[in-house]
């Protein structure tokens, strides 16, 4: 159904509606209008949060604590390299990536969070800095809508770029197939986590990449460069699947080790379910 919807905006909205309210509570305790609880004063607490009424009643110092939903900054990183244009399902990987990114932008802006966008191509990264204004959402969605897959994947350079641009404490969500020839590229991305950023990787993969359902002699053509190879797919299938499973295992292991949220996204699965899984995990972590 999503494939019939033209543009990221419509697809993102459709996905967002599928997600339960999409609300999430901010893990940050900060300025908020909604009282949450009292906490006994401890040195270091701001004096302005002292509840003088409570002092009058109980002759003890209590500090007021509040919940707030609005001070999160998020940067959505979308890989727009040529490999993301592959599709065997109705949606290409890039379409899935932009839909997920758009939906997430909707959800964040709806909660008054600031959303930024960084598009990764071989030529470099195009950035939209995080903002919470409603008009900024349209800018982000418009940028996503105009993405075309092209060129090679250079996650390493993208990670370097993000390290410079992204400030501490941000949510960084990366949408990519992570098909970078350089093994250290993933490590550079995961290094963003070390800067106290909340990092989430959406590993977008096509079912054909996961299952390699080819039987006949096939001439495989690269989507990013001039590489081509003629093989009897049936003969190498086992070996391919071994290689691919090893790649997924390495990626998952690296994410687990770096305490990074890792989600494998098949392009043929419902995206609202993907986001619900993601949000559910975040709620559990916040709790």
């Amino acid at each position: 159904m999503l494939a019939k919807l033209a543009g990221v905006k419509l697809r993102a909205r459709a996905v967002m509606e599928g997600v339960l309210s999409g609300l999430h509570k901010s893990p940050h305790q900060g300025q908020s209008v909604e009282f949450s609880e009292h906490k006994e004063y401890a040195p270091g607490d701001e004096l302005r949060h002292l509840d003088w009424k409570a002092f009058g009643k109980f002759d003890r110092y209590y500090v007021k604590r509040y919940e707030h939903e609005t001070n999160l900054k998020a940067t959505l990183v979308v890989d727009a390299s040529g490999s993301m244009g592959y599709r065997s399902a109705p949606l290409s990987k890039l379409e899935v990536a932009t839909t997920l990114a758009g939906t997430l932008a909707y959800l964040l802006v709806r909660q008054q969070d600031a959303v930024g966008l960084s598009v990764v191509t071989r030529a470099g990264a195009a950035d939209l800095p995080p903002r919470a204004a409603a008009g900024h959402l349209h800018t982000v969605l418009g940028a996503l809508d105009g993405l075309q897959p092209a060129g090679g994947t250079d996650l390493f350079a993208a990670a370097e770029h993000l390290a410079e641009k992204v400030r501490r404490g941000q949510l960084v969500a990366v949408f990519s197939d992570f098909f970078d020839d350089r093994d250290e590229a993933l490590g550079r991305i995961l290094a963003l986590r070390a800067r106290r950023n909340d990092l989430a990787l959406f590993h977008v993969l096509d079912p054909a990449e996961l299952e390699f359902p080819f039987d006949d002699p096939t001439l495989f053509l690269s989507l990013e460069d001039e590489r081509r190879i003629e093989v009897n797919a049936r003969e190498i299938r086992e070996s391919y699947l071994e290689e691919f499973r090893a790649f997924l295992d390495r990626t998952r292991a690296a994410c687990t080790e770096a305490d990074v949220d890792y989600t494998v996204v098949r392009t043929d699965e419902p995206l609202d379910a993907v986001l619900l899984r993601f949000l559910g995990r975040r709620q559990r972590r916040a709790a």
Binding site: G85, Y86, T218, F220, S222, L223, Y240, E243
Partner: peptide
């Protein structure tokens, strides 16, 4: 000898690696 069907493929790096291995 059947003519192979051309197929643009994203994970060609894995195909190449598998082909070299086997």
């Amino acid at each position: 000898r059947r003519k192979p069907r051309p197929h643009p493929f994203a994970a060609i790096a894995f195909v190449l690696r598998s082909q070299r291995r086997t």
